[in-house]
Design a protein around this nucleic acid. Sequence first.
DNA 1: ATGGTCGATTTTCGA
Length: 253
Amino acid sequence: MKIATWNVNSLKVRLPHLLDWLAAEQPDAVCLQELKLEDKAFPQAELEAVGYQAVFSGQKTYNGVAILSRQAPAEVVRGIPGFDDEQKRIIAETIGDVRLICGYFPNGQAVGSDKFAYKLDWLAALTAWVKDELRQHPRLVLAGDFNIAPEDRDAHPGWKDEIHVSVPERDAFRALELLGLTDAFRLFDQAANSFSWWDYRMNAFARNFGLRIDHLLISDPLVADCRRCWVDTAPRQLERPSDHAPVLIELTR
DNA sequence: ATGGTCGATTTTCGA
């Protein structure tokens, strides 16, 4: 089983890249973030035509998440239960015996800002909910754009003391790991300076000035089954790309 | 050197 996460930064603009990429990689499930479209504009027919069922939670202009899957989705949840939020950032479903949670974590803008406070509140609510989810679903994947680079090696050296790498954000990431989740990427040897996001500005991709902020955290039973985790930089090299690259895991079943 | 680039919507905002 192959599961991916990709912040597409406008599904409308990126649909051709997504369709090409699905054909090339043949993932079993894909978590998408930053759809930036309303549900009525979701390209369901185009995705069904290439063999993917979709569940989605979108809004105009901002945010928006979806999960594509070959298998039929069950137990779909939209938003963090009990956390009142107009921003569409969470969708979850069960495929087979795997619980898949797709999140577009708040950016946070700047350390100490109102949006930063919202980010930390959101992370606390997410963590409490995922703890419950893990009790009910031992085989669980939490995937998405976390907007957190968990360690110094996950940020290019010029990115210091800023949003995405602050102590409170990294502590929140650790709190998710302490629930019994593992950063699948770090189960394996990886090249130095492996990132998943590069700013559109200042030629950041060509200079590999990036951050690793897109993650798949997996529960212990899935750690035993995980054979590979990698960033696919190919779509980031295309014309008019998303600023994020997809990240994938391959499970033995 | 306080810029730069995208995407959706405007007379900027969020990333």
